[in-house]
């Protein structure tokens, strides 16, 4: 029974793979709408102008995927469950030896600590530069946010719970909400000024919204959208990594939700 099933699966897998390879090797690319994107100037970084200008609404969706994923991670680890008896049993049970938590992590050697802290400080600085210069140079909100989040993760891995670079999770939650709300509300403001959602307005009245040299003044709200995405990605990725590694907070959370349920 099982071997027959494997055979059928193998054959269909092979056919599928062959057809994908065949159609990929026959690929002809039509430049299409790219020509429009390349001949109309918004800001020097054309990728950024596609992300935050032409297809800004996709980026909004992408932000929301991250927001939802972080919310769902919180739910997985016991926030607002209707019934948390299963999780309670699981986390009250004694640990086996091979299970590593942040609490019982131990400490790395001085060499790693010596290198990790300056490296993470530099990464934070680089991340901030990447976010702020996203509209001129390669990079943008997502890349910068990911850099800062990885600096945090590096520091947490090296120092355990005594990490010098540490964000409180409530602070991160608020940071993420602020990032996402800024993006959503800037779009609404654009709707009232330009008539379309996520319209790139460059000035309110006579006041330029992004004071800059003449070539970049067309950026309008794009640098602010960059900052919003940066905040959100930094907060989202740090929260996700933090949830996957830090059990103490989860147990606290479960106890707290127990109080709410028993009230």
């Amino acid at each position: 029974m099982n071997s027959k099933r494997d055979l059928v699966a193998g054959i269909s897998f092979f056919v599928f793979g062959a057809s994908i390879l065949y159609s990929l090797s026959n690929m002809h690319v039509n430049p299409g709408v790219n020509l429009v994107y390349l001949t109309h100037y918004i800001i020097p970084n054309y990728v950024c102008s596609v992300i935050f200008g032409w297809r800004a609404y996709d980026t909004l969706g992408e932000c929301l995927v991250l927001v939802v994923a972080v919310m769902v991670s919180w739910i997985i680890f016991g926030k607002s469950l209707y019934d948390n008896t299963y999780l309670k049993e699981l986390f009250k049970a004694p640990e086996s030896d091979d299970y590593i938590t942040l609490h019982g992590w131990g400490e790395y050697t001085p060499i790693i600590k010596f290198l990790a802290f300056p490296a993470s400080v530099f990464m934070v600085a680089l991340g901030i530069v990447t976010i702020l210069g996203g509209h001129i140079t390669p990079g943008g909100g997502f890349q910068g946010g990911a850099l800062i989040a990885s600096a945090l993760i590096l520091s947490v891995v090296a120092f355990g719970s005594k990490s010098p670079l540490w964000f409180d999770h409530k602070y991160l939650e608020k940071l993420e909400a602020i990032g996402a709300l800024t993006y959503l509300l800037l779009g609404v403001v654009g709707m009232f000024i330009g008539g379309y959602y996520l319209f790139i307005f460059t000035s309110v009245g006579n006041l330029p919204i992004f004071p800059a040299p003449k070539e970049i003044v067309t950026a309008g709200i794009i640098p602010y959208l960059n900052i919003a995405v940066g905040l959100k990605v930094l907060a989202g990725l740090s929260t996700a990594a933090f949830l996957l590694s830090c059990e103490k907070v989860i147990i606290e959370r479960i106890e707290k939700s127990e109080e709410i349920l028993n009230k």
Binding site: R55, G61, E62, V65, V68, V72, L81, Y82, T85, L87
Partner: peptide, 22 residues
């Protein structure tokens, strides 16, 4: 592509709603 982005959001939302039963 916009359709695809929201398709992914809905698939995470659905499992999130499922996990609420715990």
């Amino acid at each position: 592509f916009n359709f695809y982005v929201f398709f992914e959001i809905i698939s995470i939302v659905q499992v999130g709603l499922l996990f609420l039963s715990g």
